[in-house]
């Protein structure tokens, strides 16, 4: 899988209780792209992300990663390729220590002890959490938890990084730190977020979801300048693109 292309074709998902979360989604994300998926609460963002590594199966349609369809045979490799960071780091960190949590993925890959140790070290270094290795995850601050959660997928050396609302619940400093970290990655990146200022900084392309459908797909700046579209999808222009509320200048 040299080209880490994510293809979603006519994806529809209906939950067991009958909720139609996704109606008919199609898009392609290319190697090295950084894409934001935005939309109001309940638009279907999280549901979409869960299809990208096969946790949910499409009711109708297809998802292909690197040209491969999601089948039981390709699933293990696709789960390694697509690193998924969840919204709430408390759901992602479940081992007694940070080290063991970051080692969980590589251990499941069946890597030898020595390589596991090396990967854990590198992943923690990368997110600036090397000193936390022996700490229990439940004692960390919100920002630290988030960074460790990222390390838990980096240790599997994914090609595609998928994150659900990465800056949610972080204080301004931790948020800055995280954005800086994510800027440095050269993976294909897919984020969902309500933090549109972060989207401007990190993503050149934005997909707008509204009630389970793709409402718009294009360059981030163009989308954020389309006031009517944003209003229709219950979104708002990011603060950094609005005029100054005090002096009115932009």
């Amino acid at each position: 899988m040299s080209h880490h292309i994510v293809e979603v074709k006519n994806l529809k998902h209906v939950y067991a209780d009958g909720t139609i979360a996704l109606k008919d989604l199609s898009f392609t994300i290319h190697h090295g792209e950084s894409v934001a998926i935005i939309g109001a609460n309940g638009a279907g963002k999280s549901t979409l992300l869960l299809h990208l590594n096969g946790y949910l199966a499409p009711t109708v349609g297809e998802v292909r990663i690197g040209g491969f369809p999601l089948t039981p045979e390709t699933l293990p490799e696709i789960r390694r390729t697509v690193g998924m960071v969840f919204q709430d780091p408390d759901d992602q960190l479940f081992m007694p220590t940070v080290y063991e949590d970051v080692a969980f993925g590589p251990c499941n890959l069946g890597l030898p002890e020595e390589e596991v140790r090396q990967r854990v070290g590198e992943a923690l270094e990368k997110v600036g959490a090397g000193h936390l290795a022996q700490k229990p995850p439940y004692h960390l601050s919100g920002g630290e938890k988030k960074r460790v959660a990222i390390a838990t997928v980096l240790s599997m050396s994914p090609d595609i990084l998928v994150m659900d609302e990465p800056t949610n619940g972080l204080d301004p400093f931790s948020r800055r730190q995280l954005i800086g970290l994510l800027k440095d990655f050269h993976h294909t990146r897919i984020f969902t977020s309500h933090d549109l200022d972060m989207v401007i900084e990190l993503c050149e392309r934005t997909i707008v979801l509204h009630q389970g459908e793709v409402k718009a797909d294009g360059p981030t700046v163009a989308i954020f300048n389309n006031a009517q579209l944003l209003a229709e999808c219950r979104l708002e222009k990011p603060l950094s693109m609005q005029g100054c509320p005090i002096c009115g200048r932009s």
Partner: peptide, 13 residues
Amino acid sequence: ERIHMAMVVRGFS
């Protein structure tokens, strides 16, 4: 379920 999900996507089998 969410935790199980987090385990599965990291290759838990």
